[in-house]
Design a protein around this nucleic acid. Structure first.
Length: 300
DNA sequence: CACTTGACCTGTCCGC
DNA sequence: TGCGGACAGGTCAAGT
């Protein structure tokens, strides 16, 4: 579910909610959600104070004052929802607008309790997500973190670097290439489709057949759609909510994603859904024509 | 090596 | 209304 804009929205929320809180308890229902937890994981967490909340690609990092960190991946359906002490709402007692009911619920995998009675719930319907505890100094060497490419939104991630890194995947489709987290970190299925529409590029076009001009346009498109989404609190379809349990509104502004059968907002042709790189893929067939003999196989 | 496919899970939706 | 199959925003292992 969550791609870079969703994870960033959660990070910004947690950053206002967690630092300074002291952990007093940790409960997890399935070992899979906490793969490196041992019987003494409590020793490392209880009494620790949250210092910072960071992000790398689609991974969240909660730093503690003990030189340990929690590294979290939400995969498709993960949620990280903070609840104040029972009976206290957000914003001076106003309703929370949360999409989530009372917690824990049946998809709660892990609960972290704080000294003041507040709690952080890690929910994950499909159980693909995980949370790992490790020394803060080891985070960069973690098997997930270490292979990530540059941050898509970093100021020093230039279009030239984007093109150079795409050269590693020159024979695959442009969509598969930008979804590859080792090429750049943060793009998922929604922003891949939206960025490709922005650049008027068919997702099945082979990377080596895309002109420099188009690659620059794609670089710009990916960054613009992600920045817009962060400003709108991310994309909510089914599962995604922010740290307070609220949905984001980017999908109302999406040009192609989940708009199959509806008219293209630019030219009026009907948006189509296909399968590219094994993923559901949305295009305007008029704005994003498939170059003849210059593409990987597509099925519809 | 580069690249593709299926597996990991649960829930939902669609056609029969 | 019930049932089987396809599909869902991400990664990883195993295959060609």
């Amino acid at each position: 579910m969550p791609e870079l804009p969703e994870v960033e929205t959660i990070r910004l929320g947690l950053l206002t909610l967690l630092p300074g809180r002291v952990i007093t308890g940790v409960e997890s229902d399935t070992p899979k959600s906490f793969p490196n937890a041992s019987q003494d994981v409590d020793d490392y967490l209880i009494g620790a104070t949250v210092q910072n909340v960071d992000r790398r690609g689609k991974g969240l990092i909660i730093d503690l004052n003990t030189n340990y960190s929690l590294l979290i991946h939400l995969k498709m359906t993960g949620q990280l929802v903070f609840r104040p002490k029972h009976g206290e709402g957000f914003g001076g007692g106003h309703p929370t607008d949360s999409l989530i009911g009372s917690l824990p619920d049946r998809s709660t995998r892990l609960t972290i309790s704080f000294e003041d009675g507040s709690k952080l719930f890690f929910n994950d319907q499909r159980k693909f997500g995980w949370m790992k505890l490790m020394p803060t100094a080891d985070v960069p060497n973690d098997s997930f973190i270490a292979k990530l490419g540059p941050e898509a939104l970093d100021a020093d991630f230039t279009s030239r670097i984007f093109r150079e890194r795409l050269a590693r995947r020159s024979r695959t489709s442009i969509k598969a290439a930008i979804l590859d987290q080792t090429v750049l970190a943060g793009v998922g299925n929604i922003y891949a489709d939206e960025g490709l529409f922005y650049a008027k590029l068919h997702p099945a076009t082979t990377v080596k057949d895309v002109s420099t001009k188009k690659l620059n346009r794609l670089y710009q498109g990916i960054r613009e759609v992600m920045l817009l989404s962060i400003s709108l609190g991310g994309s909510s379809d089914k599962n995604y909510v922010d740290a307070e349990g609220k949905p984001g509104s980017y999908l109302k502004f999406a040009k192609v994603f989940r708009r199959e059968g509806q008219p293209c907002l630019v030219c009026g042709h009907t948006i189509q859904k296909l399968r590219v790189a094994g993923r559901g893929t949305h295009i305007c067939p008029h704005c994003q024509p498939l170059p003849r003999s210059r593409s990987r196989t597509v099925s519809s």
